[in-house]
């Protein structure tokens, strides 16, 4: 599989982060939560009815909305 947005990454597939396309505020927050280029990331679960994604990055777990996850480009391993 070629590069994709995090929101489209299948469950339990590890990918590495290629880049983050967000405004500065969101980019800073994402960096502080561990979203940096080259980091390994996977989607553990997706809430029903278009709800948030549960994402694991390193030892950190976060929830984020699918629309926000679209700003993160990943390359599945």
């Amino acid at each position: 599989m070629s590069l994709a947005e995090l929101s489209a990454l299948p469950l339990e597939t590890t990918a590495s982060i290629l880049g983050v396309n967000a405004d500065t505020a969101l980019e800073h927050r994402l960096q502080a939560l561990g979203f940096r280029v080259g980091k390994q990331i996977s989607v553990i679960r997706k809430a029903w009815l278009g709800g948030p994604l549960h994402v694991r990055i390193g030892t950190t777990e976060v929830i984020m909305r699918r629309c926000d996850a679209r700003s993160i480009q990943v390359q599945p391993n």
Binding site: A22, L26, R29, L30, L33, P52, H54, T60, E61, V62, I63, M64, R65, C67, D68
Partner: peptide, 15 residues
């Protein structure tokens, strides 16, 4: 009231 106060704030929370 949601029509009166629309927003596009991202939601990212640590678990």
């Amino acid at each position: 009231f949601k029509g009166k106060y629309p927003n596009q704030e991202p939601l990212i929370l640590e678990l």
